[in-house]
Design a protein around this nucleic acid. Structure first.
Lengths: 234, 234
DNA sequence: TAGATTGTTAATCGATTAACAATC
DNA sequence: TAGATTGTTAATCGATTAACAATC
């Protein structure tokens, strides 16, 4: 139906529809919507089931005006003088994020980090089910980790198809990341979360996000240094 | 700070550049500088020790113009018609990021994720040494993980001071994150990397970065959905 | 009505991109 | 000089912020 050649045509078509469509929510806003959703679902149901932008913004660590701006991309569902109905808001954000359905995930690389991710409880709570584990190490293949068998990465195509997997997590060493990415894409995966500290090349229709743990520490170290030396201003 | 000036001819250019001295480098640029540094140090030394913006940009997954813009914040050290001297570039980025010295890190919370982080080889390679482990679980305190003893979190003050620790990693359950943050700050930690999916409140002089693994998956799921429905234009 | 809070606007800020003059 | 590549400019794009009119 949708066709694989989305590329250039989409850009033009969408920019027509851009102004009024739910589709053009800024990425920064999407990330914050996920945060709001988490807060709303986690918190004890308030008696009145209402939350104000001031209250939610405080918990989310953003400014009230920014929060309202974010929510405005969902349409106008708040009540002036009152606030937002929590249930409505949850439902609306869920639908917008596609968080009303579970997503099935393949995890490749069961070293230290991979094993931790395989057992990470936070995924299931937000609608992500690790449905298949892969490695290339014969010592790991066939073993069970976090209650799931480790498959040989060469079987990725069959397993991913059987499990309807659309998201892949790469937790392999740096040197294998590109190869694994290609295998995943060939197995039908359309989105990849890459923990290897290397930029992987994928077809344009595949989304990749990278999480670079050491880079986060480097950012912190830099910001700390800037603060420390910044005040002096030689 | 930047060191002895380059030469008489460039005096004007350099003092222009001082306006954007280290303090003014955009965060997005800092993050990419860390990526460039990693690529440069990892790659086999080229025969001529020169790299062009086109080549480095390709590997880093950015555009050449953006890379040159990023490097321009370090001053003008490339050679027109030639490229950048790799050793000079490495040294310059290192100094800018404060990556020439090792940073000592405390890790709190030795569940699945914490154990993986304790053994994560990628930290040491980029100048971060996990110097102390903390938990509050008596079953874990005293045990060794990744070759280091697990301390009681109540001893954080003494241990962090003894080890000169300035960076903390929170890998505890959500419910403990705020309390742990306060203990770390009270122990002299100035920068925190928070893996708990909750926004923690800290004094203004403390830097916090949050890594929310499930949020990354949610972003992917959203972007995927947008692509899939975006092409149709319903 | 009076008080409260949203939704929106306009200004500001910051980052990206493309083009090209400078210059090795 | 001729070719190559940087460094910088200006335009564009995107995100944040504050203020306030709308309205419950």
């Amino acid at each position: 139906m949708i066709g694989p050649t989305v590329g250039g045509q989409r850009a033009a078509a969408v920019s027509e529809a851009r102004k009024h469509s739910v589709r053009e929510i800024p990425e920064a806003t999407v990330a914050r919507l996920a945060v709001y959703l988490r807060i709303l679902t986690a918190r004890p149901a308030a008696a009145d089931g209402i939350v104000s932008s001031a209250e939610l913004a405080r918990v989310a660590g953003v400014k009230p005006a920014g929060l309202r701006k974010d929510l405005s991309f969902l349409g106008s569902y708040g009540t002036r003088g009152v606030g937002y109905d929590v249930e409505t808001l949850i439902e609306l954000i869920r639908r917008t994020l596609g968080a009303h359905q579970a997503h099935r995930v393949a995890l490749v690389g069961l070293g230290n980090l991979g094993q931790a991710l395989a057992g990470y409880a936070g995924f299931a709570g937000r609608g992500f089910v690790i449905s298949a584990l892969f490695d290339s190490d014969p010592a790991k293949i066939g073993r069970a980790i976090a209650g799931r068998p480790v498959h040989d990465i060469v079987d990725a195509g069959a397993v991913c198809a059987a499990e309807s997997i659309t998201i892949g997590i790469i937790a392999t060493p740096e040197g294998s990341a590109q190869e694994v990415a290609e295998i995943l894409v060939g197995s039908g995966v359309r989105s990849i979360l890459n923990f290897a500290p290397v930029v992987i090349a994928v077809p344009a229709e595949v989304e990749v996000r990278r999480v670079d743990l050491a880079l986060e520490l480097q950012m912190l170290a830099f910001l700390q240094t800037r603060r420390a030396t910044g005040a002096v201003g030689t």
